[in-house]
């Protein structure tokens, strides 16, 4: 899985783009006292993998690489225009302001950014463990559900039939 991958193995993001994306992802899903931030979790490597992996990259998203290159470019342009600096050098509120502008102006990129960030974050077993989800696939073990009490169907029946007789 992508967690085993170190930065040297990135195929898509350059070193500078990787640093930019790590900052961006830390704003998309920031840390709190329970959960780590997405960038710090290493999701840049996941998104890098998505760019080439036929399982992770939805087949209708073949232009994803182009969309990300353009999106990262626009983030830096917006950061420079608004705050005269590189995105990674901005304070948190400034970074959020830049991303809100990008969300409005580049919806295709932003949707893809959110989709793949959330996909990676919420299928990472470290996160599943924190949120109390099973850290295994649904099969072959399945889940346990207790039997239900259906006695109140008698109430429903007591109100009589509700279908229309025809013929």
């Amino acid at each position: 899985m992508y967690m085993d991958m170190d930065r040297g193995e990135l195929r898509f993001f350059s070193e500078a783009q990787s640093a930019l994306m790590e900052s961006v992802l830390n704003q998309i899903i920031p840390s709190d006292d329970k959960y780590p931030a997405a960038g710090n979790l290493g999701l840049v490597a996941y998104i890098d993998k998505v760019m080439f992996d036929p399982i992770y990259l939805a087949r209708h998203d073949k232009s994803l690489r182009r969309i990300f290159i353009e999106g990262m470019h626009q983030i830096e342009i917006c950061a420079a225009n608004k705050f005269q600096g590189a995105f990674v050098s901005l304070v948190s509120d400034q970074q959020i302001a830049v991303l809100k502008t990008i969300e409005e102006e580049l919806p295709e990129f932003f949707n893809a950014l959110i989709t793949y960030t959330y996909n990676g974050y919420y299928t990472d077993y470290r996160i599943l463990k924190i949120c109390g989800a099973p850290t295994r696939p649904p099969q072959p073990l399945g889940h346990k559900l207790p039997d239900s009490d259906f006695s109140s169907t008698e109430l429903v029946k007591s109100r009589g039939t509700i279908y229309k007789e025809v013929d």
Binding site: N111, Y122, T123, C131
Partner: peptide, 26 residues
């Protein structure tokens, strides 16, 4: 599941429908 809860609510898979990013996400 967790991904569906964050990303689309499951029932609307394939549409842009996701929970808030940034502050308030968790």
């Amino acid at each position: 599941g967790p991904r569906g809860a964050a990303n689309s609510g499951g029932m609307t898979a394939g549409q842009a429908s996701y929970i808030a990013w940034g502050e308030g996400h968790h």
